Amino acid sequence: MASSKQLANLISTIAFSTYFIFIIFQVPLFSVPCRMGICKTPLELTSSLLIGSDVFPHFIVKTLLYPGAFAKAIFTQKTIPSYRNLLNLYDFNSRTISAASELQRLEVLAGSYLCVGGAILGLMKPGRITLFGILLVIWGLIRILVLGKSGFSHANGVRIYPTIFIALVSAFFSIRKDVRKIIHTFNLKHVGKAKHF
């Protein structure tokens, strides 16, 4: 039987791989208005802001977007997009978003950056940044929806998809130390019950 450490490593590796696939291959987690119309993934939202602010060279953004565009083309049985025309496919400048509108979604924007950063940095060592990112996105989306229903904010086009909760669970279980603590606690309880019999 595998040791607690090996089991924790296996669980966290599978969880991080799931999280990485969700983020990099752009599985829809939510929908919010953005420069391309509606962004459905943290990577689309992050790329939309990076393109709009001209902080990063376009080739970095295109490199981040290409795996998801490739996967979508295969999944929908469409022509595989060319790397050169990738930004035209996403059409990031189709809609202008006011600064006030972006500030209303500040948690979602910051959380999206952390989600993408956590997925990339996690290739070296998965950490809590993935969990903080997805929690911040969920908190921001819920806040927008609650304020929208209360009449304080405009929540048109904002949705939460069930896949975001799979990403949340994956982000939590990708933290190796926490998984080890859970397994260790479970083993202690199991041993304690065995001693009573």
Rank of each mutant, 00 (worst) to 15 (best):
L114E: 06
V179Y: 09
K125N: 04
A110H: 06
P126H: 01
D91Y: 10
G127A: 08
Q104C: 10
S153L: 10
N156S: 15
L89P: 09
H154N: 13
S98R: 00
A99G: 01
Y83S: 00
L121Q: 00
F132A: 13
L131A: 12
R180W: 08
I80E: 09
G122P: 03
G122D: 07
L147N: 14
F132L: 15
R128E: 10
G127Y: 06
V116W: 12
K149N: 13
G118S: 00
L89H: 14
R128M: 10
I144S: 15
V179R: 04
T79P: 11
T76N: 14
L123C: 08
T185S: 14
R143A: 08
L147T: 01
K181V: 06
L168M: 10
A155Q: 13
I129G: 02
P162A: 02
K125T: 05
W139T: 12
I134K: 04
L106E: 13
S150H: 08
V179A: 10
R159Q: 14
R128N: 07
H184L: 13
V169T: 08
L114I: 06
G122S: 08
A99T: 06
T163F: 14
F75V: 13
Y161V: 01
V191R: 13
A110F: 15
A119Q: 01
A155D: 12
L135F: 12
S82Y: 07
G133R: 02
L147C: 05
R176P: 07
A194P: 00
K181H: 07
K181T: 06
V137C: 07
G133L: 05
M124N: 04
G148P: 10
R95C: 00
E107G: 05
G140I: 07
K149G: 09
L168T: 09
H154I: 08
A171E: 12
A100G: 01
F132T: 09
I183S: 04
G133N: 03
P126Q: 04
G133S: 06
T96K: 07
K189T: 04
K195N: 11
L131W: 12
G118R: 01
I144A: 13
W139A: 15
D178K: 01
I138A: 03
P162D: 03
V191Q: 09
I164F: 04
R143I: 08
I160G: 00
Y161C: 00
G140R: 02
I182A: 12
D91A: 13
G111A: 13
L135N: 08
V158H: 14
L147K: 11
I183Y: 03
I144M: 15
V116E: 12
T96R: 05
L121D: 01
R159S: 13
S82L: 01
F172W: 05
V169H: 04
I80F: 07
V146C: 03
V137W: 10
S170Y: 03
K125V: 05
L188A: 11
F152E: 13
L86Y: 05
L121K: 00
S153K: 00
D91F: 09
D178H: 13
P126M: 05
L168N: 12
I160Q: 00
T76I: 14
G133K: 03
V137H: 02
A167L: 08
